[in-house]
Amino acid sequence: MIPSQFDYVRVSTVDEAVAALAEHGEDAKILAGGHSLLPIMKLRLAVPTVLIDISGAQELNYVRVDGDQVAIGAGTRHHDLEKSEVAQAEVPLLPHVASRVGDPQVRHRGTLGGTVAHCDPASDLPTALLALGATVVVAGPNGRREIPITAFFLGFFETAMEEGELIVELRVPRTGSAGWGYEKFTRRENDWPIVAAAAVHLPDGSVGVALANMGGVVLRAEAVEAALAEGKSIEEAAALAAEGTSPSSDMHADVEYRSHLARLLTQRALKVAAGETEASTAESTAA
């Protein structure tokens, strides 16, 4: 299967990308790694008439400390995030989650900005960014603006970006050696999660908890966070994980099972983050 025809524009800076978006209007799409966009274009579920390729924009490839935050260029590929020593030291949840995306070939191409812009409710890295309370920096015709990630994912494949804007940076708090956990539940290792839970201890003393695939967008587990803030136990808090969610029912899981998984994985992620248990892995411990 192959995409419908489109025009291709290669840009090498963010300014050029913004200009190209302005020129080509709403049917133009930004192409970075292409691993969210091209698959749906091949199935002709997306039919943009212009692709603006920003993969040559070197200014978008970085992971660096910026004050009390880590700033990550939107063009950073999952593989580079996974291997980034800065990320490993300052916000280890992210490189770990990057290592769990898809398979090596996908991680070699896919970018952080791309996966955030794509806004898939089952996506790993957006879940982690949500737990971290990240900030999304977008550039557009009126310059740059910052959007809290809690306000970014609006609905199924719908974000707070406006026409003519693209993501240029993600900013997350430096969590350093604070605890974190990521529990991803799949059929096969490299599948999208049926449900995933991210938990991370944040510098302000709170615990951020987010869920993948429990609704039309990745979700913050607010009831769990509130319960923890009130001093409830991990078990008590995790029992609230499905509150406020709207999971779908599909061939992998119905609503009841997804809700169960949300509670179970949240509890496990919180325990790992608290240093109580080891992360679950598929690897056998059998005799």
Partner: peptide
């Protein structure tokens, strides 16, 4: 130097 799935990369990329 990196493995990619060439069905999901444009020749132009």
């Amino acid at each position: 130097g990196l493995t990619v799935k060439s069905c999901t990369v444009l020749a132009l990329q």
